[in-house]
Amino acid sequence: MFGYVRPRTDVLSSEEMDAYRAAYCGLCRALGKQYGFRARFLVNYDMTFLYLLRSGVRDRAEAKRCWCPARGCGKKVCTLDQVGFETVAARTVILCVEKLRDNLRDESFFRSLPDRFLRLLFRRAYKKAARRLPSFAALTAEQLGKLRALEQAHSPSIDATADAFARIVAGCAADVEEPALRRPMEQVLYQTGRFLYLADALDDLRDDCQNGVYNPLRFRFTPQNGELSAQELDYLTQLTDSSVNLAGAALALLPLRAYDRLLENTVYLGFPAVFAAVRAYKFRAKAGLPGIGRRSAKGGNTPKGETE
């Protein structure tokens, strides 16, 4: 969706990097198998993190070489975890399509034409995913509605707006039955959602100020020419660092059997590195800091050496 949730690949071992790539490709494959070829374009880092978190409490699933459409006739190693990917793929489709639907409301008819086309393209996939996870689809629509109401009221509260989005992300663990697993997972995801929202808000701040579009940071702080002061940026960085601490403390409570280093890397190193890149206007400019990869031209995100 956004691509802000990613590990620092420059400090990953080759084995961990391979596991990350296999999970990413596994999600892509699962999207294709369950929702058709075009759903493969919805694969992203953020939902790969969700898969790693949800499946980390189980033994690592097997991986094998599978056909990769991005490579034509080539194959890539994919994690094969039908049960694990099933709900993650459904949530990916729901989140992406709901986000498209939300975008449509902000734009004029002509400017929203690409989003309208994409939404049409994923209509059937969305229906199938919503049938699979009706409560998550309802939660996403409800929280995006709340977020929209806050935006229309020009809310200066970054907590309230981030909360609406973070609750959707935390909802990705609502179906975990055991409270000792569900509560830490929800906390990790809530703080991840909060981080995502704030990183995205900061990334968009310049454009939003120029275009007069709502951005919580515009109303919470006093940006000059679309830029926050160094003090305000420090304050924001400290808030996201506190989210890292809370997410890390929750992660430590999970009995992780797989992907533990990858998950810790993403929270403790990936989040701060991404935020530093966003803060320095390097994330969007495709001049990412070492080890956090780059954004692809079409807005998706690809691990180092990967193709979508």
Binding site: Q238, S242, V244, N245, Y268
Partner: peptide
């Protein structure tokens, strides 16, 4: 201090580059 983004002892030991 808990909301000023300081590093927790565990994080400091393991992930504070």
């Amino acid at each position: 201090r808990s909301v000023q983004g300081g590093y927790t002892p565990y994080r400091q030991t393991n992930y504070q580059r």
